[in-house]
Nucleic acid binder design. Sequence first.
DNA 1: ATGAAAGCGCTAACAT
DNA 2: ATGTTAGCGCTTTCAT
Lengths: 347, 347
Amino acid sequence: MHDVARHAGVSVSTVSYVLTGARPISPATRKRVLAAMAELDYQPNAMARGLASRRSRILGLLMPMDDRGTGATETAFVTGAAEAAARAAHHLLLSPIPAGDVDALRRLASQRILDGALVMEVQMEDPRVEVLRELGVPFVLIGRTRDTTGVPFVDIDFDHTVRGAVEHLLDLGHRSIVFVNHSQEALASGYAPALRTQESFTTVMAEHGLEPLVVTAEDTAAAGRAALRTALVQCPGLSAVLAMNEHALFGVLGELALQGLKVPDDVSVVSMVTSAQVADLATPALTTMTSPGSTLGRLAVEVLLRTLEGSGGPSHQELVTCSLEVRGSSGHLRRTPERTPGGVASR
Amino acid sequence: MHDVARHAGVSVSTVSYVLTGARPISPATRKRVLAAMAELDYQPNAMARGLASRRSRILGLLMPMDDRGTGATETAFVTGAAEAAARAAHHLLLSPIPAGDVDALRRLASQRILDGALVMEVQMEDPRVEVLRELGVPFVLIGRTRDTTGVPFVDIDFDHTVRGAVEHLLDLGHRSIVFVNHSQEALASGYAPALRTQESFTTVMAEHGLEPLVVTAEDTAAAGRAALRTALVQCPGLSAVLAMNEHALFGVLGELALQGLKVPDDVSVVSMVTSAQVADLATPALTTMTSPGSTLGRLAVEVLLRTLEGSGGPSHQELVTCSLEVRGSSGHLRRTPERTPGGVASR
DNA sequence: ATGAAAGCGCTAACAT
DNA sequence: ATGTTAGCGCTTTCAT
């Protein structure tokens, strides 16, 4: 920077000010400085800037890496966030700290390496909120806690998503709908998307005077197969599956085929918060409430950066909707076949 | 840090030295300093350390986010790398810079924010190698270029992977094997895994005196379906599919079902460099050459950190194998049915 | 509109 | 084994 200043015949502070834009510089000198920078291939040292300005230009992406958070939907968040950060000349620091490891987060946040944080895999009661607040690290949740007063977040509108899916199935004439959710443990641990969708499902079904059948499953195909068998026992007349668990859903599809039940002729299937990529893997392709993809990540970064700028205003809260994309896995209710519970469909 | 020093009755440099371990400290004073740190909840300022030591303790994860690089296998790399970095008290900075954007990489590397870089989505001729070398940023490739002399890397042993898969199919009696690869464009752009596996496949088949049938497909189910139809036209007696393209493979599976061909009774299927998670999505579950998961990412970080420590030695190069996991999608050759090319199997 | 200089919070010589 | 101090390369008052 010293060299650039000499090269342009100005002081170092002037060079700094054309870099930061923190005070007006005459067009003439600015041009000379810029030229000198280009000439010398000058790039400001990030650590020095960070130390002097107390702004690292680094955003933390708090992404617990339990395998649940690792689908195509989450990857899209990351992609969106990374690109938005890059556009704003910021960096993204990926931290795999588990949601419950308060000490590790405290250590990270105390290092003053982050200007702000994006919190993924948010739980209903998430201890990270309190830690970040206490340590004065601005943050935006990708997801939301149970109590969202004063907490900035962007999240999927799960209620809207469930309603869209259920109404699609109702429109097709289905009345016996089973909801395949994540595992009991996921629910117990406060995994918000599972809890919220389940509650919405119960509510919506009740609104239509229908019985809300719910089964839970680990995120594996085997668990999905078992879940479908359970569902068929509890409701032999089952004509539609609504899933909040992609991995289990592929097991459900396999089990349906095994039982001789055709999709969508015998059973309609809708997968919620699912990417087009994943929808495409099944045959027929899955009707989905399509996850917002990179939008959510981008949005989160934009909200966070706005918070860092000025603000003081009310914390930004925003719900993004999933949109219904009808593919081959859902269709009109055809018939209500007699079925042997838990066995092969009678012919 | 000043406060900690006073609290412990020592100088700031002593505090610094217990932090860095750069010179011996008597057990007694070290204990006092540590106690003072704990007492005051002291955490060293990362920017200040970075500036003074010229070591940011940040590793760059250069991960171009074209959608190809976004499967479960790549996610596992990231997980492994993140955890290894955390264990070594380092951070991971996620950069989505495309492999071809030399300027953006130059800008990033010149900021001296990275102690080193992990390079993902490596191309056969990758311009990033030259840039990083020129700017003096140590790096390890996850993948490898065509010419690997003097370039540190960790990669999958694709030749071993292809041999394992082909030999499994040969053992089962299959002779008519089609290789479903990534798209023509991916090959043309120098996507190394696609090029290497295809070459190995051709070689191995030739070694056994067999015709190497190869079809390419975009990473979509639709392309996979089309690819299978093409393959059946070119080789109606086809009894096995070997895939290097997960997305297309699910299309292949769908098309096989449509054509009335059962897996594995009529056609055996093996997917290469595939995670158990993805293998499980299909019914029956896919026989795979299972990708090394988080190992590769962890290894890359360890190699990079070792390079940063001392080094000077020969650049570390390591190939990790995929191991055969036989699931339900592969079985003994049963028969060679007469088939109507491109149509439904005759019965 | 520009310059001079005092830090930012550490590390690492150079001391003893 | 510990202390003293000069930077690290910037930003940002306080000047003019």
